[in-house]
């Protein structure tokens, strides 16, 4: 038997753990890559303003997440092979081909990518693992984690409401990846661009985390935005960004 039962299927509806919260906030949903995605909240101007002037958050739980485990040397070899020579250092992630490679430890990392790129990334990992020769394991943990993008000039102020992780640029530059406590639960923050972050947390805590983030954002004049509102910001996420 394989571990296919961990991977969402396009033959069944896949829902984010925060879908109901998004619907309560009047999200408009669309099915994309098998997932129902909150694409907008039908207030494009308000969403744009939040992204540019205050703080916005968007549900990206549909991002594919692959947990990669191997011995430190093997992991480094696999990452280098898959990223064209990229090297992971704790505290920093690298982005190649639209996928983020984020190390939790020297022997464990998570790879984040669009669902459409997942098969390609998985194949490359398998191939690289075969070359590395040691014991390596790539497990799809897409549905184990909720994911929220946080963007806007008040992003750091928003995080300050629920995490003690130091996100000042000198400690968390673009490409910084900081696992730690978020809203009193385990999670991680990836700084994708100067004013854009991605936070990961346990999927079962989705509703709770949404509530915390939404409450804090509202206080700062922010709001939820749809995935479409992020598109203009995609280009600001640099390739090969690395904390190192």
């Amino acid at each position: 038997m394989s571990l296919d039962f961990l991977v969402p299927s396009t033959a069944a509806v896949a829902r984010s753990p925060m879908e109901r919260e998004a619907l309560r906030a009047r999200a408009r949903l669309e099915t994309r890559d098998g997932w129902t995605v909150a694409v907008s909240f039908d207030e494009p101007e308000a969403e744009r303003r939040a992204c540019n002037e205050t703080v916005a958050f968007a549900d990206l739980s549909w991002l594919t997440k692959i947990e990669l485990q191997a011995g430190a040397a093997d992991l480094a070899a696999i990452v280098a092979s898959c990223t064209g020579g990229g090297r992971l250092e704790l505290g920093g992630a690298i982005r190649v081909g639209g996928a983020w490679w984020c190390p939790y430890t020297a022997e464990r990392a998570v790879v984040l990518c669009e669902p459409g790129a997942a098969a390609r990334v998985r194949d490359r990992i398998q191939e690289a693992a075969g070359v590395a020769g040691g014991l390596a394991s790539a497990v799809d943990v897409t549905t184990a984690h909720g994911a929220l993008a946080i963007l806007g000039p008040l992003s750091r102020e928003l995080f300050a409401r629920f995490t003690a992780i130091d996100l000042r640029p000198q400690l968390t530059p673009v490409g910084g990846f900081r696992p730690g406590s978020l809203a009193r639960v385990p999670g991680a923050i990836l700084r994708e661009a100067p004013d854009r972050y991605l936070m990961l947390f346990g999927a079962a805590l989705g509703r709770y985390v949404w509530t915390v983030v939404s409450d804090a954002a509202e206080r700062l004049g922010g709001r939820p935005v749809g995935a479409d509102a992020l598109e203009p910001f995609e280009e600001r996420v640099p390739e090969a960004a690395s904390h190192a």
Binding site: R15, P17, R20, T143, R161, A183, R184, V185, G202, A203, A204, L205, G206, R207, Y208, T211, V212, D215
Partner: peptide, 14 residues
């Protein structure tokens, strides 16, 4: 602080 209690919910909770 804010009165939010971390609670896990299954994906079928709703």
């Amino acid at each position: 602080g804010r009165p939010f209690e971390p609670a896990k919910r299954s994906s079928i909770h709703g």
